[in-house]
Design a binder for these strands. Structure first.
Lengths: 260, 260
DNA sequence: CGCAATATTGACCACTCTCAATGAGGGTGG
DNA sequence: CCACCCTCATTGAGAGTGGTCAATATTGCG
């Protein structure tokens, strides 16, 4: 598994060696990789997965309120999820890179609480939820795995909460860049060199910052030698210092959690 | 189900009519109430639930890193969950009222990513996860219900994200008060009259605000005739206007989500 | 080549944080 | 039963981060 030199748009098809082809092909290692699923079961899972035609940039995978029929795994490209409130105001709730799942937040009410839109040309796998449910009721390993993935999602949201609640603007941006870096690296891409498929606007929205602030931060980081920024192409020049910023002690007082 | 006049500390034992006693007793209607579980199955579920002795204010239910063995349902009292990072800095991630579950975020890694601490005398039910897993592999209805609950948790976190990312201080506090109001009302307590079991410090931390800001907001809301505040005792005097504040258009620009 | 969308940069200002002091409860011990 | 202490809550004054508004670049696309 030699890292590609850089992640470029439309160049980010996942491949993971040592994992069953079927699963691999579909970026479903989140469901399959961990323990608890054997070869036969994997074939079964593979059987219910549909490959979809790639979506072009800016197309919607689903809208708010769409009936929930399937969860999706990104094969290549990237997707943003966002929940529009009234009047065109939105909150971007996540960016989904190859190998990552989306749609889990729809299980509760059986319709999508957020919309999903491609940030570039994107291909996906579709996993019909009904059949997944049926399958997982027969395969305890799969069921456990589902719960774990959901749980991980909760964890992710909670770390984001920490980010929005207690971090300064530069800490937030640093954290996002490191998150993307890690996630690309996990998929076999370069950790220091990648393209941002999302706009500055999306980044600002996601991090709870104004676009202008994001822009200023990118230039500042560049000036300070942390990054090489060329529009959407990012090179992390000083990973160590970037980590230092992202992991800085949150603002606010040390907060002694109370009495007793 | 006649609403109690006000929720007071140690007065908030849940009771829901029309639901099986066993389940009712244990505030587990989240697992049982919705479709998909019949009487026999409910007895089985009831069988694995343990009642615990009440915890006193300030006691921990679990710490960060504690091995995950059970999920918990609050019967009476209230609990805060928080994830300490290094050096005593914390992020309060949630307040859990009677009838609500906690511990779901531990399923992924099998240890608790956050700590749970009682805000007052609190009694709980304990549901051993191993046995719940085993049971839910036999009862498809229960399994579905588990997924739904997890999914709801994700939803909840996402609305919090919106709150922290795009809302002004007063919108955040208004939203929290309304959330508590709704949750108390759902459990049969007064929607306009309740006690805050958490400190101003906890509130500020949860909402990403300084304690002083929270305090100032309470006095301002009082002056404006929205609330009657007497320390921890809150009476919502103008529910309509409070809703107006909480649902105000988020700050920032209307955000036209991009091209295409 | 020109328009439209996106990004960058600057000036100004407001919201909220920080620091600091005071006030109010709640518990403990004399 | 009251004095004392400790924690929590409130209030004020000042400062700073990040938002708003506005003008200018840059890019991409038809």
């Amino acid at each position: 598994m030699n890292p590609r030199p850089a992640h470029k748009p439309a160049d980010n098809v996942v491949s993971l060696d040592g994992i069953k082809v079927a699963c691999n092909d579909c970026s479903l290692f989140q469901l399959c990789l961990p323990v608890g699923i054997d070869a036969d079961e994997l074939d079964e899972l593979d059987g219910i997965i549909k490959r979809r035609q790639p979506l072009k940039r800016g197309e919607h995978l689903f809208h708010v309120g769409s009936p929930f029929q399937a969860i999706y795994a990104v094969r290549s490209g990237s997707i943003k999820t966002y929940s529009p409130s009234e009047d065109g105001y939105e909150q971007v709730t996540g960016f989904h890179l190859p190998g990552e799942l989306l749609g889990l937040d729809a299980i509760n009410l059986m319709h999508h609480p957020c919309a999903a839109k491609t940030l570039e040309t994107t291909s996906l796998c579709e996993i019909p939820y009904e059949r997944l449910e049926e399958l997982s009721s027969r395969l305890p390993g799969l069921q456990q795995q589902m719960l774990k993935i959901m749980s991980r999602e909760i964890l992710h949201d909670q770390s984001l909460l920490m980010l929005l609640g207690k971090r300064s603007a530069e800490e937030r941006l640093a954290a996002l860049l490191l998150s993307l870096s890690n996630r690309y690296q996990q998929r076999g891409f370069s950790a220091t060199d990648f393209y941002l498929s999302m706009s500055r606007n999306d980044i600002g929205n996601y991090l709870g910052l104004a676009v202008e602030t994001v822009s200023r931060l990118f230039t500042r980081f560049q000036e300070e030698g942390l990054l090489d920024v060329q529009r959407k192409h990012i090179r992390i020049a000083d990973m160590g210092r970037l980590r230092g910023i992202a992991n800085a002690r949150p603002m606010g007082k040390p907060y002694s959690s109370g009495q007793v």
